[in-house]
């Protein structure tokens, strides 16, 4: 077992010693700063306040009390993941096998008496570390930037809606509970985002270039997101990945039945399981020409 962890450590060294791995981290900080910059515009804040009022013309007297770090950090995480999360997870997970095949290093590894299944599990474990790493990095930097620049942590107000024009306030937490919910939310986001990594990883195990694996993954999620905004396909919504991915935000709702979030998590885990089974089967049986 210690050899497995040593090999896993080596996989992580290989991943984190590459400059391109950090593109995701740098890009997310840039996106967070962009969000903060845009957020300073009064129109953006007014739109948010309107969403919190839920259509009421009366100004919300508590608006200022939760217009701080935690609330803005949660919005920043949502914005950053919507903008870049899928892209970077696809790039890294799409790279992890296909790039080694392209470079020829996988042939060198496979000349060793290491089983393909072990190698597959090492690669996937590394993807998983990156997925959680990126989620928590974005969560932490968003909170740090938002609480530093927006007057402390404050209360957590959660706004949610499957469509941008139907946002509503679903919960308000005080600072301590809000912080705890924020960490739990990140953990759940880390779990559900594995579906993106698993799909890119699956493509990576097929005979294709790393960029193709990333593009194929992004294409799937783009089509999924497009189907969600077409009103005629609303009946189809609960089959879409993007609908279930939003369960991490729904989990903040005080009165959201846990079973609904549970169904979404199970759906995404089942999909990830299917992608991973296909990738394992493909990785173990395909030919790697030297």
């Amino acid at each position: 077992m210690s050899l497995f962890f040593r090999q896993w450590k080596n996989e992580l060294i290989k991943l984190f010693a590459r400059r391109r791995t950090y593109l995701g981290f740098v890009g997310s900080v840039v996106a967070e700063l962009l969000f903060l910059l845009l957020w300073r515009h009064p129109l953006a804040q007014r739109a948010f306040e309107k969403a919190i009022r839920g259509g009421s013309a009366e100004p919300n007297p508590f608006f200022d009390s939760y217009f701080h770090g935690l609330t803005i950090a949660l919005l920043m995480v949502t914005f950053t993941f919507l903008l870049l999360g899928g892209l970077y997870l696809s790039l890294v997970a799409g790279d992890i096998v296909a790039k080694e095949v392209e470079d020829g290093t996988l042939s060198m590894i496979l000349s060793r008496p290491v089983s393909r299944l072990r190698l597959w599990s090492l690669k996937w474990s590394t993807c998983s570390v990156y997925t959680f790493g990126l989620v928590f990095f974005i969560g932490f930097t968003s909170l740090l930037l938002a609480s530093t620049l927006c007057g402390g942590l404050g209360k957590l107000a959660v706004v949610y809606g499957q469509h941008p024009h139907h946002l509503q306030l679903i919960s308000i937490f005080d600072t301590a509970e809000g912080l705890w919910r924020y960490i739990q939310g990140l953990l759940l986001l880390g779990v559900v985002m594995h579906v993106v990594s698993a799909l890119a990883f699956m493509f990576s195990c097929f005979n294709m270039k790393p960029a193709t694996a990333a593009i194929a993954t992004l294409a799937v999620f783009f089509i999924d997101a497009m189907l969600k905004v077409v009103p005629f396909f609303i009946f189809f919504e609960k089959w879409l990945i993007s609908y279930h991915l939003a369960c991490w935000l729904r989990s903040f709702a005080k009165y959201e039945p846990a079973v609904d979030v549970g169904i979404s998590v199970c759906y995404l885990l089942a999909l990830s399981g299917i992608f991973l089974s296909i990738s394992a089967f493909q990785f173990c049986r395909r030919d790697f020409k030297p």
Binding site: L3, R6, K14, T105, M108
Partner: peptide, 28 residues
Amino acid sequence: VGAIFETPAFYDYLSGMTNLRIFCEYSA
């Protein structure tokens, strides 16, 4: 069994020593 290919591929951004360790530790 040891093997060498026509164009030996390594992790260019890592040192020769780290490369040797990484490849070798796949077996022992």
